[in-house]
């Protein structure tokens, strides 16, 4: 069926607002693309609450390659400093070098401690210390896990450890583990802050999912502004169309942003989703629509052809 083989593209599915349908799009797009004769990887980058696997009950745990320890799970760690209070002279050099306020020091009462949540693992404090008082330990930030759903299709899930301040390193590891070949779908976390940036950073194309409501529009604008500064190609899917108002549509026209797909506000779609079922499995017409959208995105990426959009 595919005219082109060895397709290579990374597509991120993102939104500013939470709950607009990123997972709905990611999982259905992924499943649609598994019918191509290509390697397809879905990366669940929503490390604070990964849920893509709920839609693939048949997924089997699989091992990573040797770069990732060769096991089914890979622990994402970060080095944090450990300060030996018997060697520390409370000079304050490490605190001075730390850009993240991760060293707490009260010279007066000889108190020093590391605020691990603020540490970025840069190692500047170890470099600064003249008293040999700083060693490091590894701290677990989360795990990435690999699953296979078919001959050429796999899912990598990023899951942050509860209580860890930032999911970014875990997301980064998951995206990297997906490799550079084949089709990679990145299901982004909501928002437009660091976790979103990390997810879309390596993407060739970003699908922004929104809904036609004031909240949807407000957060869409923020996402678009962010992607503009990153020089990314992107398009928009309007989910739950038919509700709300038409301001999102006017915005897309005004900004000349391609509308990739519209999904109606439909009880049956919501019901399937809530049961962990894939829309494209139950309603084949959607499989065709997802495939068509993918082809548009791929040809735009490959040939810079945007004539068939909007």
């Amino acid at each position: 069926m595919p005219a082109i083989i060895n397709q290579k593209i990374k597509i991120a599915v993102a939104s500013g607002k939470g709950g607009t349908g990123k997972t709905l799009i990611s999982t259905n797009l992924f499943h649609t693309l598994t019918q191509l004769d290509e390697t397809v990887v879905l990366v669940d980058c929503d490390a604070e609450e990964p849920d893509d696997l709920l839609f693939f009950k048949e997924a089997l745990a699989a091992t990573f390659d040797r770069n990732y320890g060769g096991k089914e799970q890979y622990e994402v760690e970060q080095s944090v400093p450990v300060i030996d209070q018997s060697k520390c002279i409370f000079c304050g050099k490490c605190r001075e070098y730390c850009s993240y306020n991760a060293i707490f020091l009260l010279e007066g009462i000889k108190t020093i401690r590391v605020i691990e949540d603020l540490c970025h693992g840069c190692g500047a404090c170890s470099y600064a210390c003249q008293s040999d008082a700083i060693t490091t330990k590894e701290r677990s930030l989360g795990v990435i896990s690999r699953f296979i759903t078919g001959d050429n299709s796999s899912i990598i899930e990023a899951r942050g450890r509860v209580g860890v301040y930032s999911p970014v390193p875990v997301i980064k590891a998951a995206v990297k583990a997906a490799g550079e070949d084949g089709i990679v779908i990145l299901d982004s976390p909501p928002g437009t802050s660091c976790p979103f940036i990390q997810t879309v950073a390596t993407a060739d194309f970003v699908i922004l999912v929104t809904e036609p409501t004031p909240f949807g529009l407000s957060d869409l604008k923020q996402s678009v502004e962010t992607l503009k500064t990153m020089n990314k190609s992107y398009g928009v899917i309007i989910n739950r169309s038919g509700m709300g108002d038409d301001k999102v549509y006017s915005y897309l026209i005004q900004e000349q942003i391609p509308l990739l797909m519209e999904i109606p506000f439909d009880r049956e779609i919501a019901s399937l989703y809530s049961k962990g079922e894939l829309l494209v499995k139950h309603k084949p017409q959607w499989r065709a629509l997802f495939m068509e959208m993918y082809k548009t995105i791929y040809s735009k990426h490959k040939y810079g052809n945007s004539s068939n959009q909007r």
Binding site: Y100, N101, A102, F104, I115, L118
Partner: peptide, 10 residues
Amino acid sequence: IEGAGPASVQ
């Protein structure tokens, strides 16, 4: 940008 709380404790 980060860590205003602990710095303020200091």
